[in-house]
Nucleic acid binder design. Structure first.
Lengths: 217, 217
DNA sequence: ATCACTTAAAGTGTCGACAATATTGCTATT
DNA sequence: AATAGCAATATTGTCGACACTTTAAGTGAT
């Protein structure tokens, strides 16, 4: 909902999306300074729209601003990554809990179907099961929570930061096969309307994911 | 940390704080439109700083903006309040868990002392145990989590929304005596470094608080 | 050579004006 | 009378210029 409807309407919108993409994908280095005048010439818009874009990036926790000094892209730190995953664990855990309560039967069926298509691709050797599939899975559950706060906090905020960290660490995608089993169990819990279990499994899933990243540091 | 250091340095800062106060305290009605020109004359600053302030209010989830249309103060809804408390439950639960791990012994001692002073005032009939005390308690635990994401999400964002809802519903403060016992148990869990229990008790505490509000609807 | 002070440069913060979009009210047609 | 289209108005979005702050460079004294 919040995510798929991201059509830019104003110049500040497009600049914001562009800047966010450039930051998340590492084209603008972590920790680097964002000069308003410089960006304004680079993106061929006035400083006003750059400022608006930077403000939104700040709200997304992708940049930090200091008054009268300027904005910098947030710099990577293992501690920051851990903190991010702690928040993610709390929010996505709650998301799974609510999804078990609030997802419609149709949505659950779709989710199971998505998992099946992933399953086939994994079995047939295609290691397609990568970022796109993983993201799709998590998005559906978050959206299934029907909690607008949760949805926008995760989808508009945290996920972009997570992706940025992934790029910084040079990780192609999430863990492949083991993660798939975890997904399966989560969906089963949701299908059984077992909110408690769904939350617990989702929290574990994210904890594992983080530990997997930690080993690569 | 993030909270006590809120000194305005720029005109946009002061305008933002003023506007936020006016919204949270209900001087600007929920659901009302925020006209840029109007506010610019009212607060005697240019539209640029008003726009910046509104942007930050939007990031705080206190107002909603639509392109080429304008900004409105978020409007109250029971559903919205429930969703807010669900997020709060998840985040403060994690906050308590982390506080049990990360608070220093001194900080815990201070927290216990704070609770004692509340206790005396409750026993002596002073129903002082109101918003200020409750807020102080929750802030210390959140800050004790040492998780910067958690801290800013709650203190810069969610708490203001919660206060706004409280004002809308005309609730003087939180539940008095029962809440105090809950606080006591939470602190004990933290002092015992029992992260699991601290999280569970905090989540319950917030759930109770929400149910208490629900009855008043 | 180092440090304090002054001054120049660069960058952010703020402003007022103009452009583009949305809303309102009116007119005309059926 | 109701509706569609159009004109007028009001509001937001964008721009360039100016003011203020920070930072860096440069000068002089110890």
């Amino acid at each position: 909902m919040t995510f798929f409807t991201e059509k830019p309407v104003t110049a500040a919108d497009t600049t914001f999306f562009q800047l966010r993409k450039d930051i998340v994908e590492g084209n603008i280095a972590a920790g680097s300074k964002l000069s308003e005048t410089q960006l304004s010439t680079k993106y061929e818009v006035s400083r006003a729209v750059i400022r608006e874009a930077i403000n939104r990036l700040e709200a997304s926790n992708l940049v930090e601003r200091k008054a009268n000094v300027g904005a910098r892209v947030v710099s990577f730190s293992p501690q920051g990554l851990i903190e991010l995953y702690q928040v993610r664990e709390a929010l996505e855990g709650m998301g799974a809990r609510l999804a078990a309560k609030n997802m419609s039967d149709d949505e659950i069926a779709d989710l199971q179907q998505l998992l099946n298509s992933h399953s086939k691709k994994v079995e047939s050797g295609e290691s397609y099961y990568q970022e796109a599939g993983d993201v799709d899975f998590h998005y559906r559950i978050i959206l299934g929570s029907k909690n607008q706060h949760l949805i926008s906090t995760l989808i508009d905020g945290i996920y972009h930061l997570v992706r940025m960290y992934r790029v910084q660490l040079g990780m192609a995608g999430p863990r492949v096969t083991t993660a798939f089993d975890e997904h399966k169990h989560i969906v089963r819990a949701i299908a059984n309307r077992d909110a408690e279990l769904a939350e617990m499994l989702m929290r574990r899933h994210i904890t594992y994911s983080m530990k997997n990243i930690e080993t690569k540091l």
